[in-house]
Design a protein around this nucleic acid. Structure first.
Lengths: 357, 357
DNA sequence: TCCAGATTTGTAATCGGTTACAAATTTCAG
DNA sequence: CTGAAATTTGTAACCGATTACAAATCTGGA
């Protein structure tokens, strides 16, 4: 009775062609195990509610056929989809990669899958992605940044999908945000340069019309200058894509200008490193001739020459926290409040007082 | 008749509390539009099969209610899930991020969503992830690297899910692979160093027991040395995680050793940059005192000091190709063959002939 | 031994779409 | 104007799970 005949199993199984395997359904498993579908379902979802002996028999059949339940059917019938959706502008910038990976880690540890959408900073694409995620009935949603059309939020609300916004505090969003304050962080960077004595400062940042983080940092740049009655010179402001080369050419342009800055606020490290490279190539000393401060604290900034002064953004922590907040909401716990994480000023060697001229 | 009364629409809609919105079903849309569910379904999936007038009426109702069809129900009823699964070891290493993003781009442009799983180099986690993806009935699967347990492939085959393997040619996988040849690429790097005249060469790479790409590169290292009758010195081999700091400490150890190498093959750029930083900190000239060759050609390697000699790996192209191959298989086209993409040797300034001693 | 209460199991309705097939309508050549 | 072919539409049977509810079985104290 206990002996298992291998022959049986093999035979019960298969014709000849592998292509003929039909994926088993819960009904077939149930009938083969001599129980009802309800029991099989319980074995899978509430094992403790099935008598051990039976449970093991069912598991054996499941094992034998590599049965994997049809999640769609389950989700339809009322269970969770066990998937959350994440929308980010890009993953090639490692700062977004870090927060995304943190989200992944939390989600996976709680047996949630992650449907990832990359919007590439295009609002229309983001909208499409969100629709797709809703269609897939994700149990929750994590969005990056704010400034999106408010009817997107309405769409999400209509479908009663809990969501959280990261990388930005978005008042328009009817949900908790997990972020840091881009504006004050930007001010922190600018204040550093100003306190060092710089008065002519350039800005390199992302495109503020599609990236509200860039916008806030730019605002910080402009405000801190205005407060000190320093005129804003548009020829010192460069909005570019997140590529080393973009930072580099922007810096080139500044150096070629009639009155180059003594310091540059690069509102992200990628562009900062590009700018740094251009200075090096042009024989301009950093921080001797020109100071550069970055933003993000990418791991690599510790290894540039000179190491980059920058603002450390809590990418991982945001991802971690956002995911936990979201899972709490999914569990039905009362909606948590927004959280503003602190950023950290990382003083390294790319900034110094301006040369006395 | 044509005039639309806004009042009507608003009224038809809503009580007071937003929370009361119930998500509409296709049946409700159908009845409100005065058609059958079949027609609504057609409007959504085969619009050309519905008379224009009716179609527009239906679309109007859909629009009004922000109706989004329940993808699970659809997938259950036989339609595609319009989702592909992607499993990678990490996304924080930007080389994987690049290929993942390329996959995303292709998938999204064909209206597929991407369920992303990050295995963190843990086989058991990878297995879990794959099960989850199967459970979600993804239409196809993209796996990274080989060397996994063969019954994972059996599991996938049983469920008739087309898949492709990237970053590795895996003979065990019953599917097309899209990769480059890690082994020859490794040989390419080593040959460069050997031809420059180096005989004492260190190796820093990922953990070969969980990462078959690292394993192949290591094999290339060992083979090229053996072929030239150079003894392999285990004290010059470091298997570490993909972090700058790991490359750095590995280099430290080599420098501290009794007989430091004249060259180092860092089998990935992250560790190479770490090694570079350690040399700089220790006052060791690169390539004067020691040559370093990396692997991957991360964007940042162009900006290190000195710029890094490395092997350019076709991350984006692999992602792009893999996704296209997979979508072709999903469309039912005959299974494409494997493809081995070429790598490129990028000679920059971190390698030179050994100092004559 | 018997029965109330607890535990285990099965029956069948349900989730929200898709689609085969049939029915209704339109189109158009003769 | 007629009727066959083409186009549009609707009916209703699925897809494969979950779960409320009822039925069956087990447990142990009197």
């Amino acid at each position: 009775m206990k002996a298992v005949t291998f022959g049986d199993e093999e035979e019960a199984e298969t014709p000849s062609s592998a292509a003929l395997f039909k994926t088993k359904t819960i009904r077939e498993i149930a009938s083969e195990a001599g129980v009802s579908t309800a029991t099989v379902s319980r074995v899978l979802n509430n094992p403790e509610r099935v008598r051990q002996e039976r449970r093991e028999a069912v598991l054996r059949v499941i094992e034998r056929h590599d049965y994997v339940s049809h999640g769609m059917a389950g989700a339809l019938a009322g269970a969770r989809s066990m998937t959350i959706g994440v929308v980010i502008p890009t993953i090639t910038n490692s700062i977004y990669a870090a927060s995304t990976q943190a989200i992944q880690r939390v989600a996976q540890s709680e047996h949630y899958g992650v449907l990832l959408g990359v919007s590439d900073f295009a609002p229309s694409e983001e909208r499409r992605i969100i629709r797709h995620l809703i269609e897939r009935r994700v149990d929750g949603l994590i969005l990056t940044g704010g400034g999106r059309d408010s009817n997107i939020y309405r769409l999400i609300d209509r479908h009663q999908i809990p969501y959280v916004v990261t990388w930005r505090l978005d008042a328009a969003a009817n949900c908790p945000c997990v972020s840091f304050d881009n504006y004050s962080a930007g001010r922190m960077a600018m204040t550093h340069l100003l306190e060092l004595g710089h008065r002519r400062i350039g800005l390199i940042c992302g495109r503020s019309e599609v990236n509200d983080r860039a916008l806030e940092r730019r605002k910080a740049y402009e405000d801190t200058l205005s407060e000190r009655a320093i005129a804003i010179d548009p020829s010192l402001i460069f909005e570019r894509d997140f590529e080393f080369i973009e930072g580099r050419t922007a810096m080139r342009r500044m150096l070629d200008g009639p009155d180059p800055p003594t310091a540059v606020f690069a509102a992200n490290d990628i562009q900062a490193v590009g700018a740094l490279a251009e200075c090096r190539a042009a024989g301009i000393g950093v921080p001797g001739d020109i100071s550069i401060i970055g933003f993000d604290d990418l791991p690599l900034t510790e290894y540039t020459v000179p190491p980059l002064t920058t603002i450390r953004v809590p990418g991982q922590r945001m991802g971690h926290l956002a995911a936990n907040r979201l899972l709490a909401m999914i569990r039905g716990e009362p909606s948590p409040s927004s959280e503003v994480l602190p950023v950290e000023f990382i003083r390294r060697e790319s900034t110094a007082a301006p040369r006395n001229r």
